[in-house]
Amino acid sequence: MGIKAIFGGRPVLEFADENSRRSFLRNAALVGVGVTYVATRVGDPLAFGTADRGYGANDANASDLDILNYALTLEYLEAAFYTAGLKANLLKGRELELVDPIQQHEADHVKAVRTTITDLGGKAVAQPKVKFPAGTFSNRANFLKLAGTFEELGVKAYHGQVTLVKSPEILGAAASIAGVESRHAAIIAQITGGNPFPAPIEANLPMGPVLKAAMPFLAK
């Protein structure tokens, strides 16, 4: 076990293995004030036409309402996914206890984001039709694998909008949801033998790549 001294010569940091050390070194330099760190690229092409979905042409131009509708779409997708997965009765015991509340959380997120859009005088996007690959709900492993994909995608999606949301209230609301998605992502990873802590700081993705990843699950 290697020990690195980082605070005034006091050894406070011990790494479990070489991978942890490398991951730490990579992330320690992540935040650079005054460094050209661009969270999102202006002009990222979206995976599909924006006109009929109500999103802005790119992240930088997206209004708070656009961002809320984007979040709403992802929450709708997640809620529908867990509703179908729990209906299929694939889990039992502790696993079921851990996954069951996630469905309720996602449904609450849908409701809260919708209400926020309406309160702001905006028009909430309709619930999208969803489709999941054949076999998704035929066994526990397939269900939880896709759950992990959705949760990590959701986390990255919320963090990808942090610098773009204009209203502090909406930002706070989005953060309070994003933290819950992080909990979900970690728990799904933990029960499937994945890594609940992929990085010391959450990764983020702009709208384009997130929508590209989500598109296969949104039916025309």
């Binding site: 610098t163 930002l171 706070g172 909990r183 983020n204």
Partner: peptide, 27 residues
């Protein structure tokens, strides 16, 4: 505390740390 952060890049980092603390709490 997030509502007090003025610099958006700092906010991005703070949010990123916040999410990881939530992961820790859950696990």
């Amino acid at each position: 505390a997030a509502g007090f952060v003025k610099d958006k890049m700092i906010l991005q980092a703070a949010a990123g740390i916040f999410g990881v603390e939530a992961r820790h709490a859950a696990v």
